[in-house]
Design a protein around this nucleic acid. Sequence first.
DNA 1: TTGTAAGCGTTATCAA
DNA 2: TTGATAACGCTTACAA
Lengths: 342, 342
Amino acid sequence: MTTGTRQTRPAQPTLELVAEAAGVSRATVSRVVNGSTKVSPEIVAVVTAAIERLNYVPNRAARSLASRQTQAVALVVPEDITRFFGDPYFAAIVQGITRRLDESQYILNLLVASSDPSHKTMRYLRSGNVDGALVVSHHTHDDFLTDIESLIPLVFGGRPSDHFGPNTYYVDVDNVAGAQVGTQHLLDIGRRRLGSITGPIDMPAGIDRFTGFQRTLEQAGLSADAVEHADFTAVSAAAAMRRLLERRSDLDGLFVASDLMATGALDVLREQGYAVPDDIAIVAFDDSPAAIGAAVPLTTISQPSAEMGFAMADMLLRLLTGDPDVPHRNIMPTRLIQRASA
Amino acid sequence: MTTGTRQTRPAQPTLELVAEAAGVSRATVSRVVNGSTKVSPEIVAVVTAAIERLNYVPNRAARSLASRQTQAVALVVPEDITRFFGDPYFAAIVQGITRRLDESQYILNLLVASSDPSHKTMRYLRSGNVDGALVVSHHTHDDFLTDIESLIPLVFGGRPSDHFGPNTYYVDVDNVAGAQVGTQHLLDIGRRRLGSITGPIDMPAGIDRFTGFQRTLEQAGLSADAVEHADFTAVSAAAAMRRLLERRSDLDGLFVASDLMATGALDVLREQGYAVPDDIAIVAFDDSPAAIGAAVPLTTISQPSAEMGFAMADMLLRLLTGDPDVPHRNIMPTRLIQRASA
DNA sequence: TTGTAAGCGTTATCAA
DNA sequence: TTGATAACGCTTACAA
């Protein structure tokens, strides 16, 4: 074959063909393919043989058109690719999701898009491509999903914004409580001049962890004004760290809303000659691989990211079976993991 | 609505409905939706209005059943999720691919699976889910794709194994030449006792980079037996580094087949008290973010990973249009990037 | 238990 | 330029 010869691609065998080869009707083949019990063993054998021989695989478009099901679910991530790949948190979530999905017939379609998500993603979800969707890293202004909610089941990773009603399904941790434990740990080891680098204030996880920090300091009668906001990236956290040090060079403790951000903060601290934890102790959040791999292994609030992904997928799958007793929320535990940074 | 009330989900409007609302035939609506020029402006206006009003979105299953096209392509990655997320190389590739695909109508379906790939992945590809596929991180034993090749266009990232004919499409760099440049650099800065940590020997990229290393040493009349194989992960590279040091504690230069692996090697070297580059100089491969972020910024062979992803997608898209002049290979340039490690 | 036949929501081929 | 009408490949009542 020479370059550019447009290849004639052999058509895949159809149900029709298998039926003919096996000497039965299309309906019977369909029953065999779908594992119906109401087919005699002999016929099953004949049909199965024909399927093998012809190397038959059902056409998904036809199948989903007829059955009104796709056997696929989407994972919607309203972030750009760089953030998606850059934060180990997502890796853990996806891992958990696929672990659950692998035991099912469902396949996963990844929709990672911050740019124009309202359009392409919406279209995708509304075109009947998937039976349901998982949503992580949800921002409060991402209200384009509210319409989708009435079309297909949605499960959120992290409490969704208030655009969504109280009947929304989600898996989360108690971010406020987690942040309180983390901040308290800094107090417990004797730190009193605490600062925080927060997540984005347009995300519940960002807000809640900040709230936990504030609340703990209030209760201790300390000021909580050494705060800078960032967006869960290392770069933004580094910038926040610089701003923080400019305002308050006397900090002795820092609560950072994610491990990845803590690595960014660490870089700046090292660069400016601060020792961690001696000068400044750090407690982070996530307990992702980034925590262990950090220049100073991070004391951090562990959340079971992979298990959360698993639970999300499980919740969605139950929803898809029409299970009437799926609880709307699943709040999973956090715990303090002590390492070198605090 | 109470917990568990099975929600009645509104059906999406169909072509039929739009046609009725606009007072035209289904065929005409279809023409408008697909941007046919042969529709009078007035009718276009009427139909468009009806589409807007009803919030119509075409059903993809029906469309692809009728048109025998899916407007989707797959990215097949025969690795497990952990490796996929762990190596910045994949992030760059995916970024390049989506950059190209975003300018098109096509959507991307990610198939990341090392376990039982022959089954689930095959089935997916053969079920008519996608019009074509991109394959990266291809192992020589991954011969399950050979059947697929006759069904849909395939474009490989990296030269595929010999299971595939000479008419296979792929985007690659000259790994042998790149490795030669890297190894030569170590010689140029006066190192003479060189070792290498290679990629997996079941991957062309692994083999070729090793070949480049060997060839350079041969030409210099030096021995190339201080070699350990790893699998492109940091962990495997760390183990390889330990084995290497056990055999040869007098190395003064090291060529490592990827940045990620170099970070694993660096950890071991630091742990065992070797200074980089003073005791041992290192040249790596990829020029991914891992190279800059490494404990010692890495001198490395840069390959244009994102551009390669872009080129792969572009090649596939051209193939899908039936373009008769798509070249079978696109070999992109590498170059040496000097940083601190050598 | 098996077969017949009517959809599923599009596109595409003809006529008009 | 527009409209019938027949596919596309499968599932699913309904009959037999």
